[in-house]
Computed example of a mutant assay.
Amino acid sequence: MIKILFVCMGNICRSPTAEGVFRHMLCENKLEDLVDVDSAGTHGYHVGEAPDLRTQRAAARRGYDLSGIRARKVAPQDIEYFDLILAMDRNSLEALLLVCPPDRTDRLGLFMDYSKNFDDEEVPDPYYGLGQGFDLVLDMVEDATSGLVEFVKERAAMLGSKDYKTFK
């Protein structure tokens, strides 16, 4: 099983969007049994809260249900547990590096590294903007998620998953 964690600052906009879109695309590709996915924030501002309503509405318009996700703060055990910890921006990545043991930094990266159609390194935080930022976040997340799903397929094939045949 491949374990992936998405991280932003508060875990109510970008990282839960990535979690929800990724879960959806995993199911579409019959990969859900091969991946454990979660999201968290570098700060505990919203622990226990559902994603921002604007985030949920934008996601729902595209067929993604984020209502079951609850915000949480990254925990030290996350660094050990997850194989891949993907930050939505450089500030989140820097915060992760501060708590990450030196022998685990290879697990950290930027989510947008999986993007095929955006040159941006970061997913912008839509929290303080008007409404259109949430759609841009979804555009970026869908694109990077598509690349991440391809990575998971390649990784599953490399690991010799017997189930790999079912998601070609």
Rank of each mutant, 00 (worst) to 15 (best):
L108T: 10
P101N: 08
I79M: 14
E94V: 13
D83H: 15
Y127T: 10
L96T: 04
R62H: 11
L98P: 00
V137Q: 03
T145K: 02
S67F: 00
D139K: 11
D106R: 05
A60Q: 11
P76Y: 06
D135T: 07
C100P: 09
A60E: 13
Y45H: 15
Y81K: 12
E94W: 07
F134Y: 14
V123Q: 06
D83Q: 10
A156V: 09
P51C: 04
K116Y: 10
A59H: 07
V149H: 07
R62A: 01
L97G: 05
A59R: 06
L66P: 03
P51R: 02
M158H: 14
D125Q: 12
I79Y: 14
R57F: 13
L148C: 09
N91P: 04
R107A: 09
L86I: 03
D103T: 03
A58G: 13
L138M: 07
T105R: 14
D65K: 00
P102W: 05
L66H: 01
S161C: 13
V137N: 01
K162F: 12
R72W: 04
A157G: 08
P126E: 10
D103Y: 03
L159M: 15
F134C: 02
P102Q: 13
G160I: 14
C100M: 04
R90F: 09
G44L: 09
L93T: 10
A59C: 11
A87T: 06
V152W: 02
V141G: 02
A87W: 03
V99I: 15
D125Y: 13
S67I: 00
R72E: 03
K73V: 09
Q77D: 15
G147V: 08
P76W: 05
Y64G: 02
L108G: 11
G129E: 12
L136N: 01
S92F: 10
S67H: 00
F118V: 07
R70W: 00
L148A: 06
